[in-house]
Structure formats: C-alpha cells, structure tokens
Design a protein around this nucleic acid. Structure first.
Lengths: 222, 222
DNA sequence: GCAAAAGTGTTGACAATACACCCATGC
DNA sequence: GCATGGGTGTATTGTCAACACTTTTGC
C-alpha cells in the first residue's frame, strides 16, 4: 500500500475478502491461500483484494476470486465490513467480507497467482494460523450460514441440482455440527415446501433413493 | 469528489451513513438533513460523511453525526455496506450504513452545518423524498430493528433507564406495527428474564405503574 | 439371507395465542 | 363515583423433539 496516496484523499482503501465454503467428505471446508512474502509471509488468508474504481463490491469479489483461486461462481452474499485500521499492518484497508457457497469443491481446479505459495481447502473446525482477522471472518461466515439455514433455502447452494433427502440432511448436520432426527427433518422440509421429487433415483447397493430438487433456484425465506 | 485522486489509488472513497431512530409520539422516527446545494439540492438525506484515514467506521459515524446533527451517543451497529458506483452521481462512494438508537429525541437540540438547510425528525411511515438510496437504507434499518427485537434486548436502547411495562410494550407495537396482547407480552418478557422491577412507580391520574429497568446495559440475546 | 441405506407416524412437552375482568389512583 | 391506565390466569392450538421398525436393493 502506498500511504502517501491515501493521505491525499484522506481515506482508507477498500478491499473485498471472500470466505468460500463447500461441503466435502462430511466436513464444511473453506478455501485459503498462503501468503508468499511480506509481514504475513507463510500465513494462510481468505482470498481477497482491492476493489477498483467504479466496481460493484460483488463484482470485485468475483474478479479477485477468479484471479486468485480460479473459482468464478456460486452463491455470494455480503457478510460484514471490517474497518479497524490496525487489522493490516501495511496500511488502512477496509474490507467488505463476503460469503460464497459452492456445491462441489472437487469440480474445481484450484490455481493461484505468484504472490501466493499455496492454496487449499481446510475444515472450518481445523483452521491453520491465519493472517489479519481472518479467523474471525471465517467464524462469522459459518455463523451466518448456520443461522440462515434455519429459515431459508441457502443450503441449496451447497448441493448439486439433484440430491437425496439424506444428502440434504447431511448438509444441515455438518453445518450445524449436530445429529438431526431423520423423521423430524423430513417432516419439517416437507412442511416448508421447498423441495420437490424428480423422476430419478440414486442407486447403490441398497434401496434406491428418491432424488429431489429445490422448487426455485433463488434464495427463498420460509 | 476529486476524481483524479481516486484514479491514483484506483479505488472508491468510503463514507458512513447513520440512520438515527427513536420513538416519539407513538411513532418510529428517523433523523434527516436537507441538502443545500449540488445535484441533490433540497432532497432529504440520512446524515453521513467521508471516513478519514485510520478512523474506525464506528468512530467516523459518531464524529459525522455530532458534526451534522449534534447527536453524539446511542446504540450503534453496522447495517450493510452499499457499494453501487451509481448510487451517488458525484463519484464512486462506498457507504457503510449504520443504525443508531436513542431513547428520547426531545432531549436533543438539533444543529446542523452550513451545507444543509434543514434538519428534522420524520416518521418512518411517512418519509419525504430522499437523496441517493437512502429510502432503502432506512427500510433496512427498520427491518433490522424489527427482527432483532424478537430475540434481543435492543429495545432497551429506545427507552429511558426506567420505564413501565406498557411503555416497553408500546415500543414493540410501534416498531412491529401491530397490537400485542398485554398478558401474553408480560408473560413472554417475564419468561425471558431481561427486566427487573425497581422500587419506583410512575404516577398519574390513574393507578401507579411499576417501573422496571433492563437487567444489563449491554445487548443481550435470548 | 444379510448388509446398507431408505422410508414412514405417534406421542408428549413446551411455546404462542386468544380472551375478560378487577384494581388503584386522581379528580 | 367515574375515568384512566395497571395488573392478572386459563384454555386452546401449534410447533418441536423424542422415539423404532419395515422396505428395497445389491451382492
């Protein structure tokens, strides 16, 4: 950061940071990149970067993600804006934190850029040491996801188009970190009327499971 | 706004806007100031201003409020960050919107500064034409307040230190815009155990009313 | 026939709602 | 004594949690 330029407009710079979350192998995971140099060398960080002039924050989040992780779509929403001037020793940077949900992390080929020495998925329950206040941001993202799953269809963004009732339930169990009764879960999901069966079944060495899809693609509150 | 300077750091400027809310005469009111010149002349606006370098957004919100309205304390929380580059025709300004709650608007002597030609309280149900996206910000503030009153002690910030059960209920009725049954309300508030009676009574030409206070001054979730 | 996951109802506890009358005071 | 707001209990309904067995398939 160039501090003199900041002084000229007497204001902080603005960045976007995006907590990417996905379910994989019965765990909620988030995507981190390892910083290659500077005061935070070898620390893991939530992917982020400066917003450009006349750029909508959501667009900036996607641009930065595509550049630094090779991920370029998913359900995106704003989380909170962190503005403590001491959060980054390199200068006063205000960060608009976002949450991005994707359905299947194994579909993505991760790629990052030179400044970062590594990129990878981490269980939110076993996070490495992170730079800045990124642990706080990840925890906030997890909390938002937990809360919003009780009254909206946000879980749809963590699932493929077609899924079984059990797969849907596992998403809830993993994010909420607790077991759910199968019958109560099915009753509740049927009552709120957000998923519908499709004429397909998942097969395996067991009884075929009815596949479902969400009634609407957009986020619905119930 | 000086566009050249922005180009140098290739980023937007950052402002804070604060929706001040209070209850008065059985209405939820918000504080607006009337813009004196420029493209938004004679439009009403939520008080706001640019954040300074190395300034925490919350501090900036209070500084700007004190300067432009003469209000300098209350319960403050962040609402949302609005970043659409087109929201202000004068330049790319990202605004961190806040909500400030105060207990008794009649205690404040409003004062504004030269750039504004008027200042006043408006019922959130009868808003004038506002500049920018300020109508949206006020509606979001109202929604946040409504929602948060169902599971927290945030209503305490709209009341004086001591209050009657009826006064507390009126705050809920005004913000929620619906009547509440007196007995059910008292049972619920007693169950969640957030207020305690004090050894004082409110007198009038009727039976004296027990005064209560909130158990804790800080915001508690139940 | 057995392993593995799918699918299905009932009961009890608690929370939210609906509803009406008497009480204490000032004037 | 009457006007004004203060204060109280019960019955009903709806929602959430606890709980176990049968079904269908592949091998």
């Amino acid at each position: 950061m160039n501090k003199e330029l900041h002084e000229l407009i007497k204001g902080p710079a603005v960045a976007v940071d995006t907590v990417v979350m996905a379910i994989n192998k019965d765990e909620l995971k988030t995507l981190l990149i390892k910083i290659g140099s500077g005061p935070y060398k070898d620390k893991w960080a939530v992917p982020g970067g400066l917003i450009q002039l006349n750029e909508i924050p959501e667009k900036a989040a996607i641009r930065v993600l595509k550049n630094k992780t090779n991920i370029q779509r998913g359900h995106l929403e704003q989380l909170y804006t962190f503005g403590d001037p001491d959060r980054d020793v390199r200068g006063n940077i205000i960060s608009i934190a976002h949450l991005l949900l994707i359905p299947d992390l194994e579909k993505y080929i991760l790629k990052t850029v030179d400044f970062y020495t590594d990129i990878g998925w981490f269980s939110v329950n076993k996070l490495p040491v992170t730079a800045f206040d990124h642990n706080k941001i990840i925890n906030l993202a997890h909390k938002r996801l937990k809360d919003k799953m009780t009254y909206s269809t946000i879980a749809s963004s963590l699932l493929p188009k077609y899924f079984t009732f059990t797969e849907l339930q596992r998403v809830y169990e993993i994010v909420w970190r607790r077991r759910i009764d199968k019958r109560n879960f099915r009753k509740r999901m049927t009552d709120v009327d957000i998923i519908i069966p499709v004429n397909k079944f998942k097969k395996g060495s067991f009884r075929p499971a009815q596949l479902y899809k969400f009634k609407e693609n957009r986020l619905v509150y119930f």
